[in-house]
Each structure stands twice: as C-alpha cells, then as structure tokens.
Design a protein around this nucleic acid. Structure first.
Ligand SMILES: [Mn+2]
Ligand SMILES: [Mn+2]
Ligand SMILES: [Zn+2]
Ligand SMILES: [Zn+2]
Lengths: 146, 146
DNA sequence: TCAATATTTAGAACAATTCTAAATCCAGTC
DNA sequence: GACTGGATTTAGAATTGTTCTAAATATTGA
C-alpha cells in the first residue's frame, strides 16, 4: 500500500465528515494500519511518538475519535480494559487470549450467517458481536509443551 | 423463594470459598435477586441503602466481588460502561437496547450449540459470548407508533 | 471472655477518558 | 505574500468507575 494511495483514501473519508487531513491523523492511522494488533490509545500514542515526538495524548484520542467517526477505524471493547482500536473494517469478531491478552480478528464465516439464536418476541436486532476467549495459537502451543 | 432457603444457599456457597454470611452480603445478593435488570455497583448501592442505610460503596464492591468469586453472580460488560451484575447463572447471552440502555438476558438455544463459526487453526476456545444490540420490545413498540 | 481472623468502612489512589481554554495551523480571500 | 476565521492541537484539569489502604468493628471458636 503506497502512501499516496492511503492518503487519498484518508482524505476522501475525512472530507465526508468535514474534517481535514493533518499530519497527526495520518500518523495515527498509519500506526493502526501498520500493526493490526488492536492497540490501546496509550499504545498508539507510544508508537506514533516514535516518528512524531511532539504528538500529545489528547491528540491521539482526538484523532482516533475522528477516524472512528469517519468510518475508517472501529473501537473494540473487552471486559473493563482500555478501548482498543481496529483498522479492519470487514465484518469480523474477536478472539481474546486468556494467557497473553492478545486480541485477534476472527472473520465471519460467509457460509453460516447469524448465530443460531432465536431472540424472544419483540426484540429487534441491529447487530451482534461474538467475543471468543481461550488460548491463541502461540499460547496453546506453549501449554502443550509443558 | 423464601428467605431461609436463599440464606442456606448463600451460606453454603460462601463457605466453600471460606467466606462468612454477613448482613451486607445477604442484602447485596437479595438486591440482585429482586430485580434482575443488571444493575451497576452504583445502582446496587442505591437499592441496598434503602433497607440498610449505613452500607458503604466499598462494601457493595466487596460483596459483589465475593459473590462473583463464589459463583453466585456474574459480571456483565458492555462497551466502556460501568460493570453490571447478573444473578442468572444459567448459560445465556445479552441484548443491549440502543434506545433505553437496558440489558436483557437471552437464553442460549438448547438446539443449536456453538455459533456456526470456525476458528482459524490453532485457536483453543474456552468460551464465547454473544452481545446483541438493537431495540428491546418496549422501545421497538414506541418506535413503530411514530 | 478472649484472641485471631474476617469484614466493613471512609477516604485516598488510580487508570482511562473527556473536557477546557489557550496556542497553533491552515485554506481561502485580498 | 499577508490576513482572517474556523479547525486542530496541546497541556493540564476534571470526571468516572474502580481498587487500595489502614483503621474500626464484627464474628468465630477456644
Ligand atoms: Mn478487529
Ligand atoms: Mn444476564
Ligand atoms: Zn496468547
Ligand atoms: Zn429499550
């Protein structure tokens, strides 16, 4: 993915919500594209600071917020932990590793649609999310060796 | 459900984790049994205070914690909101109403077991939770009338 | 009755996030 | 190129939900 192309995408999306493309927004977005491990705002801040030492925490929060509002990024919540950010905008669910705390994307099976779950009468579902827990491949492998 | 019966259950469970049955723990648990609307700690505090005016917030947190540890109560998390507490220990999922913020139990369909979702190779699932969002029956009805 | 232990309590501390208000930046106009 | 109004960034204060601390109180069982 070339920088110019990403910029163009970014600019277009931001423009739709009347926002400008700034160096900080570009940096924060590129952090999320670079390593798709669902970093927290704090983690994004640390990574962004590497290439942009003067960026502030407030700005990271502002940028993340803007990116969420213009539909380029999604928030991911798990238990009471810090909000994590995800730049994969395809429909997907998440797997949370009990051992290492990692968050992994789980693509929705194009075959089987909705969860085989009948809602009681009257409820109107808009969306659903599945949160899987257990061991990620690496942690499962380590456990097996012991 | 008679008080003595509930007390006996409570006492037995608490004893298992080496905890005592206290007036505060009984009160907090009874708040959760009385209205199963998934109250937050704050809300439990307010309700408990009605019948036990000297109970403290710290104690409510402590009691809830103890009840969770001895398996009588479950924590329920949604987005970044305050932790909510649920005394329904049957396997179930949750429906969150976008309109009124209510949290509703959704029983798992005894028919269809797991969600029809294949985890990538190597992942070892321990559990999964489905969070439904949309409109609860009351809010859906109100919307239809407009 | 007494000592050991568990529990409750008020308030301090904490982590994540949002708010505030001033400084800075930037796009479009002269 | 200088000017101006609105958008953006920034540091730090404020807020929220929760956990920690240490002292007071209650409970158990010898
Ligand atoms: Mn994701
Ligand atoms: Mn429930
Ligand atoms: Zn892991
Ligand atoms: Zn509702």
């Amino acid at each position: 993915m070339h920088n110019e192309f990403v910029d163009e995408q970014l600019n277009e999306r931001l423009a739709r919500t009347g926002s400008r493309l700034t160096a900080q927004r570009r940096e924060v977005y590129s952090v999320l594209l670079q390593k798709r491990d669902h970093p927290s705002a704090e983690e994004v801040f640390i990574r962004a600071k590497g290439r942009m030492p003067d960026i502030s925490m407030a700005t990271v929060y502002n940028c993340l917020d803007t990116l969420v509002k213009c539909g380029l990024v999604k928030q991911v919540h798990h238990d009471r932990g810090a909000t994590r950010y995800c730049s994969n905008m395809n429909e997907h669910h998440h797997f949370y590793c009990d051992e290492c705390g990692g968050t992994y994307d789980i693509d929705t099976d194009p075959e089987a649609g909705h969860p085989a779950m009948t809602l009681p009468n009257g409820f109107r579902m808009r969306s659903f999310e599945i949160a899987f827990s257990g061991l990620c491949p690496q942690c499962a492998a380590k456990k097996r060796h012991k």
